[in-house]
Amino acid sequence: MKLVGIVGTNATASTNRQLLQYMQQHFTDQATIEIGEIAPLPAFNEPEDRAVPAEVQVLSDQIEAADGVIFATPEYDHSIPAALKSAIEWLSYTTRPLINKPVMIVGASNGSLGTSRAQTHLRQILEAPELKALVMPNVEYFLGHSLQAFDEAGNLTDADKAQELDADFMAFLAFIELTAKITPANKFVEKNQQFSWSQITDGRD
């Protein structure tokens, strides 16, 4: 199984990156997890020529080549960071690699809520018709007090939280296999349909 884990922030120090690195190591027998960074992407500005910046293409190719995507998002002001939103806008406006792609959402924050509101927003965003990702239902993984959550070797110090992540990850692997069976056959057609917000007027909303 080949997965890509997207770090949901452009900050240099991020416990969400640490969480993905932990998953990368810890689940090495079950899956290959590549880490995708959004920091190099420019700010989305709805360019009229729809040109795909090279950095967006890199991330898009990573997603395209993966069997599933893990988003690890922080929470800024009750929602996802602008940098992550910007990356998602690029993907929805240009290459659309998330169509029918199985997605797992995790999040780490230093507060006690562990990104609960950001994750709800992210689910709603990924379900927009321009993205059409298949977000795994039922599973929410919140890592609160994340600055204290890892030991020096990068492992989760709380055994319960580690176990919960094990179970959630196994569920995601099963979800990927399940969605492969129900993925609509028109995936190809959807993908090649260029999207723009001005086209929603055609009643596709």
Binding site: A43, S79, E130
Partner: peptide, 20 residues
């Protein structure tokens, strides 16, 4: 604000983040 992907555009979210 317009709506991008069922939410606010990243550009608007960005200025709110700077101002918070």
């Amino acid at each position: 604000a317009p709506e991008h992907n069922h939410s606010v555009p990243s550009a608007l979210k960005s200025i709110i983040e700077w101002l918070s």
